[in-house]
Each structure stands twice: as structure tokens, then as C-alpha cells.
């Protein structure tokens, strides 16, 4: 009917969403980004195999997904006691010893609330206590010892297999 008017409305919506995002960032000193990737194996013409990470979109059961969390300090001041929490996604099982996070201490939780180093976690099963295994973990926590300086970034990542 009136193309000019339609364009105006779309432009207004974009402006709106941008401003709200800007507002959210202004209130938080850390920008946290989560991503999911899978390993893709390719074979070149010479038959040499190489593995690279690509964004996960659709995956089949049994696939290992690499979840990566990136925290960036977007403020002018350093952030202290930076602690990243990530639940093991539903329908997924944590892959043992796969959590990494340079400069952090990694702890695990069986209930999503209490965190402890892997060796200290136990599960009571049929009245007997046993050490917790990777499959029991419900959440992972990375506690960074050093302050996160303005503009600096830390990464935390883990692998989980789709049930």
C-alpha cells in the first residue's frame, strides 16, 4: 500500500532492539557468549585428514558437542572473582576430563547448587556410596584466580555427548 511507511516501521524496530541491547551491556561489565560446536573431519586431496570445529546446528545422538563460554570485560575497570557456571544441557552427558579453562579452577556439581572438585564428589546409590563419575555431573564451574582486565577475555569450555 505504502512502501515508504513500511520501511519506516522496520527501521524503527531495528533501532529499538539495538538500543535495548546497548542498555543491557551498559549495566553488565562482562559480556558472556555461549557457543556450540562439533568436530568436523575433512580429508584433503592427498588423503590427509584434519579436524576443525564448526558451529553445531543439528546433531544426532552420540555426537560430542563442544560448548564454549567466552567472557569479555566490557567495562573500564577490572572484574574480580570471575566465576562461570554452566549446566550440562539436558539430554547430554558430560565427557570426563573435557572441561578446560586457562587460569581457572574447575569444580563440578551433582545438583547444580553445591560445587566441589571432582575427587570430592560422591553419589549414594542403593545405599552404597561411590565416587561420582562424569555422567553424574549436572553443572560445571570455572573460578578464575586473576582479575579480568578491561578488554580481556577468558574462555571456558567442555564437551558433552548427546544421549
Amino acid at each position: 500500500m505504502n512502501p515508504g511507511k513500511n520501511i519506516y516501521i522496520v527501521a524503527a524496530l531495528i533501532a529499538c532492539s539495538v538500543s535495548s541491547q546497548a542498555f543491557a551491556q551498559a549495566s553488565a561489565c562482562i559480556s558472556l557468549k555461549s557457543s556450540a560446536q562439533v568436530e568436523e573431519e575433512t580429508t584433503d586431496a592427498a588423503g590427509k585428514k584434519s579436524v576443525k570445529l564448526v558451529q553445531a546446528d543439528k546433531v544426532v545422538p552420540g555426537t560430542v558437542v563442544i560448548w564454549t563460554v567466552t567472557a569479555t570485560n566490557v567495562c573500564q575497570k577490572p572484574s574480580d572473582q570471575v566465576t562461570i557456571n554452566n549446566p550440562v544441557p539436558t539430554h547430554m552427558t558430560y565427557v570426563a576430563d573435557s572441561a578446560t579453562g586457562p587460569g581457572s579452577q574447575i569444580t563440578y556439581s551433582l545438583d547444580g547448587k553445591a560445587f566441589a572438585p571432582a575427587a570430592q564428589l560422591t553419589v549414594t546409590e542403593n545405599g552404597a556410596q561411590r565416587g561420582a563419575t562424569a555422567a553424574d555431573y549436572k553443572a560445571i564451574r570455572w573460578t578464575f584466580a586473576n582479575s579480568l582486565q578491561p578488554g580481556a577475555t577468558v574462555n571456558a569450555s567442555f564437551r558433552a555427548v548427546l544421549n
Binding site: A71, I84, N86
Partner: peptide, 13 residues
């Protein structure tokens, strides 16, 4: 099935 993941960070300034 959708598999969703949201991480959280806490920090002090």
C-alpha cells in the same frame, strides 16, 4: 528435541 545451553557468570567490580 532442542538442546539449549545458557551459561552464567558472576563477578565483582
Amino acid at each position: 528435541t532442542a538442546i539449549n545451553n545458557t551459561a552464567e557468570v558472576s563477578y565483582n567490580v
